[in-house]
Structures are given as structure tokens and as C-alpha cells.
Design a binder for these strands. Structure first.
Lengths: 174, 174
DNA sequence: ACTGAAAACCAAGATTT
DNA sequence: AAATCTTGGTTTTCAGT
């Protein structure tokens, strides 16, 4: 069973890869599969029959394709919550410089509930992390009490979010 | 009808807000709703009956709550595709400095299909953007031919992804 | 494509706050 | 009174053959 506490892409990249092997599907989805995915991107609970009508397939055929796509880890149907709607209104991207093993620091960051995104990167930052806090106080506290206290963190730089202009997850279908 | 080409949070933040007013739910979800959301984060197509069994509610009650949560924009059930699985293996975060109106540049970036994420930020970068390309050539081309050519982009800095350590979307339920 | 089983839907009615 | 949950009957979908 995959670790389900971190749902979307992270899960796709880790848990699933182990079981399905690293076969790459490339952009080799046919138009019908793309159309099915598009339907489900609009509404993940749309019925197979309805999707079938839209893409010109029988209900059963749609169901089989959806099964295949999810089994292969190409697609996942999940609920996503909106931090803003839940009172987490202060977001920021952090650039972090590390002395020592970046993976150890990244793992510590990943354990923090306020941190939604952690990547190891090449460039003038070793780690990039996204934080989601209720307010400025939460962010200040997180930075000073938790992040800067991590052994090996030599400096951090914050980029407060002013406005989220775009976010998408629909690779391969457009 | 909301613009569905940009599915998740962006949609939640824009299209939905207009119709539902800006009421904030705060962390005021009761435990039952949280439990329902958790179920759907594991599998967005789990049946209402099954969820009901898990959270101690009737099938109809679960359906009503899910309806409310999605109508309120707290949650959305969608298909998410994995860029890696589809052959987009080179990702990077870009820090962009802009002279002039950052929103205009951000909108231009948002139109590019390789760019998955755009935020206006305060700090030493005016815009932060995530790019997802098939390979290094794609990234180089994007940077030089498209991004650096935008009027008002004064400098860019790239942070290539080495490893995605964490990604989550489940605010409010943990 | 067909079929039994399951789930979703709908409309009241009951219960809670 | 308003919101929320349950129940029972009906339609639709699901999953296996």
C-alpha cells in the first residue's frame, strides 16, 4: 500500500513507480484516452456512461481504459482541497542554501505540515520549498523556530506570494 | 461556466469565488467532513455508500456533504496526470525579475503550455514560475526563445529539479 | 451485449440545533 | 425554523460473463 498521506504527484512518482516499473508512456496516449482524461479533469466523478457518450465508446470500454490509465500511474482521480478556502492565506516559496547533505534537510522539511512542496534543485538554492501558513505570524514562526534551526541550513530566502496566476496538472492532454 | 483549461486551485481561486462569494470556511470543517475528504483524497471515485460506512453516515448524507463541499469550493474531485509518466522529465523553477507591470508578464507566461505554475511574488524575484519540459533542449528553447524575449523580463534564474521530495494538496484535513 | 448486484438519485419524513 | 440525517422506492451504473 502506498503512503497516502501525500496524495498527488509525489505518490505517483514514488509509490507507484515501484510497482509498475519505470515504463514510460511518453506522449503515446491516443486521442480517445486523452478525451477520457479531459472529461475526468473536469469532473472526477462523471459516470462512465456519460464519458462514453462524449468520447464515442461504450461504458465498459471507458471503464477499462480508466482502469488501465490509473493502474499505469498516468492518471489519478483524487480530491484536492483549496488552502485559501480553509484559512491558509499566507503562502511563500523558500529558497534554501544548505551545507552538507541536502537530502537530509529536505526530509526534515518534508515532515513539516506547513510545507507543501520540497524539491532538491541545482542552482543558487539547494532546496526549494513551498510553505502554506494561516498568517504572517505562522510563517515567521515556521521560519525562525523550525527551518532556520535545522542543522545544515545556512541561509533562506523567502518569496511571499502576492497572487497565484496559474496552476495546472493536466500534462499530456493539451 | 468556469474556464476549465486550468483545472485545480487556479479555478478554485477565480471562477468559483465569483459565484460563491468570498466566505471563508476557515478550519471550520467538522470531523465528519474531514473524514469524507480524506476518503476521497485516497480515491476520488470511492462510492458514497462505502464512504458512509467508513465515516458512520448514510449514503445520501455523504452525497449531500460532498455536494456542499464542492459547491463551496473547498474541495474538487479531479483527474491529475503525472508529467514524468508522460515524458516530461525536465522540470525547473524559474525566478524572474521584471521591469514594469509584473501582471502582464505573468499573464504571458501563463499562456505558455510548458509552464505549470505562475505566482507573483515579493522578494528578490517578481515572478516565480514552474516549467515542465520533455528534455533539456525544450527547456533551453523555452527560456531563450520565449521567456527571455518577453518585453519587461530583465533577468531569469533557473533552478533545475533534481528530485521531488514532497508534494501535497490536502490542506485542512491533517 | 446481457445480467445480477450495487450504487446513485430523489422525495419526504424524522431529528437535531 | 433551518439545517442535517435517514429511509424507502426507483433508476442508473457497475463488473463479470
Amino acid at each position: 500500500m502506498p503512503n497516502l498521506r501525500i496524495p498527488l504527484r509525489f505518490q505517483l512518482l514514488t509509490a507507484r513507480i515501484s510497482s509498475v516499473s519505470t515504463k514510460r508512456i511518453s506522449a503515446a496516449l491516443d486521442d480517445t484516452s486523452k478525451a477520457i482524461i479531459e472529461q475526468l479533469q473536469r469532473d472526477g466523478r462523471r459516470s462512465y456512461a456519460e464519458i462514453g457518450k462524449a468520447v464515442g465508446l461504450s461504458e465498459a470500454a471507458v471503464r477499462q481504459r480508466v482502469q488501465k490509465l490509473t493502474d499505469a500511474g498516468v492518471m489519478q482521480i483524487v480530491a484536492v482541497t483549496d488552502p485559501m478556502r480553509l484559512g491558509f492565506s499566507r503562502q511563500a516559496m523558500l529558497g534554501i542554501r544548505v551545507s552538507g547533505d541536502t537530502r537530509i534537510v529536505a526530509d526534515l522539511l518534508a515532515e513539516m505540515s506547513e510545507i507543501s512542496y520540497v524539491v532538491l534543485s541545482a542552482g543558487s538554492f539547494d532546496i526549494i520549498a513551498e510553505v502554506v501558513c494561516e498568517d504572517d505570524d505562522g510563517l515567521i514562526e515556521l521560519l525562525n523556530e523550525k527551518i532556520r534551526g535545522i542543522e545544515g541550513v545556512s541561509s533562506t530566502e523567502s518569496f511571499l506570494y502576492l497572487q497565484l496566476t496559474k496552476q495546472k496538472y493536466d500534462w499530456g492532454t493539451r
